[in-house]
Each structure stands twice: as structure tokens, then as C-alpha cells.
């Protein structure tokens, strides 16, 4: 608690201290950890676009951290103009606590306010020595899978939901069989790292496990960091689409008078330039033309959204990841 409060305080101090006196308008984008690279490319592009369109100089500030912690900082008063997360519940919380955004925030932008997605994929060692082709192979005895902790990481949650959803859609699949299946998969997980990046370290640096379940765009980061020849990507026959929703924080922009700029900042994510930058960062763009242009790096994959298979994100969170939920039962009811 104390540590968290301290962090928030430092974040506040830092963000208020670095406000440039020269800019006309300053926007703060509160985001999660691995979006750093994308917004590093996107922010200058938006600045240029806005300068040409409106003549106004916008200063953009970024705050990155664990997604739920970031969302909670905004609830607790971090003055974010926009919030860009990797799962809907982290924006829903702004509606629930403090009514910072309306309940139907997702309806305000195209594609349910999701400008780009990623797919949850399986990474295997070079040459695929354990012949892992699909989710079912992760449940095989003798296979070790590295998955981030679904309790503490969005990446882990998507991995879990991907495996569960796949099992549900198999012939004769139902909740009981899916539950048994994810139980077997997590029985093969030797280390539950707290975040997606930590899981990557365990798999690549420590060389533990035969497979790593993570986002497609994280796989690209690994390729840049560790070399393309060090692993292979396996696309499951059916997987979950990791959606990255964005929203303007109404309460903050109305107070600061930055609504116009904040809305333009998010809308520009759907422009062909925004979509191209996303694709260059290995995030699957929503725009079909841009997607077609980058078809080489995005092999077709059958995906489902969390809403489609689990009804709603909040429902999935409650059923699967709350204390005593299905994920806990994997470990406690053996």
C-alpha cells in the first residue's frame, strides 16, 4: 500500500514537474507497460498532424506501468486525459469508481474503442522439438509451458482465456471439459511470473520451459532482442484476440479544457498513419487495407473476443480470476 501510494505520488510529481511552459496544451496518456514503443512512434506523428491542422502545439506525456495500477492511479486522481489499456475492465473501473468516464465509454469510438489488437500465440524453441502445434499440446505430460500469472497480468489472463475458449469450442466441449483442460495446462507451468515481460525472461534468458504463451507483438519484441532464429511462433487453430481499448477521461478533460485535443488524439489512432504505426509495432490494425499491406507479418488466425465467448469481461474476471474462481480451483481442488 505504502509503496503504491509513494509511486503514485512520484508519478504525480514527475508529471507536474515536467509540464513544459512553452506548449499550448499538454495531454497525459496513461498506458500500460509494453505500449511504450508504440506511443514513442505515435506521439510525434500526432503532434505533427495537429500542428498542421490546428496550428497548436500539443505536448504529450506518457505514463507507463502495470495496467491495473495505472488505472487505479487515475481513479485516485492522476490527471490523465486519455487512458490506453489492454483490457476493458481497466477502463470499466474508471466508470465504477468516481464516474470518470460514462458506463458506455466503449461505444464512443469505432470497433468498440479498440484501435488495434494482438493475438495470443505460442512460442516454441527453435525446430519445435516437442512438436507443439496447438493448445492441446500444452496439456501433454512432459511439456512445460511458461505463462504469466493471470492473477497479476493481463498477458496471463489472455493466455488462460485463449486456452479455455479453445477447449470450449472443441467438439463436445463444455465448461467442465474446458476447466479440466486449463487445469492440465497450468499443471505444466513451472513458474508463474507476475508479468508478461518477466515470463519472457524466464523462457528466453533462463531457458526454462518448452513453450511460452504471450502476445504476438511481444513475440516481435523477443525477435528484436534475442534474434529471429532463437524461437518459432506457433499460431493455435483458434485463439483469443487481445484488445487494446482506449478512452478519453471525461472528468479530467472537462476540467482541463482539453476534450478537443484528447478526442483528436484517440481518433487519429484510426487514421491510416496511426494504423500503419500500429502495424509496424506488430499490433494488428483494424483497418483492412492497412492489414492487407502488412499481410506478410500477420498470418491469418482465427480469433474470438472475450465478450463473444465469456459474455463480458467483467463476468469473465469474476468467474475465472476472482478469489475462489476457476483459476484458484485449479490449484486448490486437486
Amino acid at each position: 500500500m505504502k509503496r503504491l501510494a509513494l509511486k503514485t505520488l512520484t508519478a504525480l510529481l514527475l508529471s507536474s514537474a515536467s509540464v513544459s511552459a512553452f506548449a499550448d496544451v499538454t495531454l497525459l496518456n496513461v498506458s500500460y507497460d509494453v505500449m511504450r514503443d508504440f506511443y514513442k512512434d505515435y506521439n510525434p506523428a500526432f503532434q505533427k498532424y495537429w500542428k498542421a491542422k490546428d496550428g497548436e502545439t500539443v505536448t504529450l506525456q506518457q505514463s507507463h506501468g502495470g495496467s491495473s495500477k495505472q488505472a487505479m492511479s487515475v481513479v485516485n486522481g492522476l490527471q490523465a486525459d486519455v487512458i490506453t489499456m489492454n483490457q476493458a475492465p481497466d477502463i470499466n473501473i474508471l466508470a465504477e469508481r468516481g464516474a470518470l468516464v460514462p458506463k458506455d465509454w466503449a461505444k464512443r469510438l469505432a470497433n468498440n474503442s479498440v484501435p488495434f489488437t494482438s493475438a495470443t500465440v505460442i512460442l516454441v524453441r527453435k525446430g519445435n522439438p516437442k512438436a507443439i502445434r496447438d493448445w492441446k499440446d500444452l496439456a501433454r505430460p512432459g511439456v512445460q509451458a511458461i505463462i504469466a500469472n493471470p492473477k497479476t497480468s493481463g498477458n496471463g489472463r489472455y493466455a488462460y482465456l485463449g486456452a479455455y475458449g479453445w477447449a470450449l469450442k472443441q467438439p463436445g466441449g463444455n465448461d467442465a471439459s474446458a476447466k479440466a483442460f486449463v487445469g492440465k495446462v497450468f499443471g505444466n507451468v513451472p513458474v508463474l511470473d507476475t508479468g508478461g515481460r518477466a515470463a519472457t525472461t524466464t523462457f528466453m534468458q533462463r531457458q526454462i520451459g518448452d513453450a511460452l504463451v504471450t502476445f504476438e507483438n511481444e513475440a516481435e519484441m523477443i525477435a528484436r532482442e534475442f534474434g529471429r532464429g532463437s524461437f518459432e511462433i506457433v499460431y493455435p487453430t483458434l485463439t483469443v484476440a487481445a484488445e487494446n481499448p482506449v478512452a478519453v477521461v471525461d472528468k479530467v478533460v472537462d476540467k482541463k479544457g482539453t476534450r478537443k485535443q484528447a478526442e483528436a488524439y484517440l481518433a487519429y489512432l484510426w487514421s491510416s498513419e496511426g494504423q500503419t504505426l500500429a502495424a509496424q509495432n506488430y499490433l494488428r490494425p483494424q483497418n483492412p487495407q492497412v492489414l492487407a499491406k502488412f499481410a506478410g507479418q500477420f498470418p491469418p488466425v482465427r480469433t474470438f473476443t472475450v465478450e463473444k465467448v465469456f459474455g463480458s469481461w467483467d463476468g469473465a474476471m469474476k468467474t475465472h480470476f476472482a478469489d475462489g474462481g476457476v483459476f484458484d480451483q485449479i490449484y486448490t481442488k486437486k
Binding site: 500469472n149 497479476t152 513451472p190 513458474v191 484458484d328
Partner: peptide
Amino acid sequence: GNIPLVSEIAPLIIISKLEQYD
């Protein structure tokens, strides 16, 4: 290693509860 019931420390339980807004 953070495996529930085996190597999951109490501070991690606290963190994971915070992650769930609990």
C-alpha cells in the same frame, strides 16, 4: 516461481488482490 500453495508468498497475494481492485 509463484506457484499457488507451493511458492506463492504473502506479499504476492496482496499484490494480486490489488490487481483485481480488491
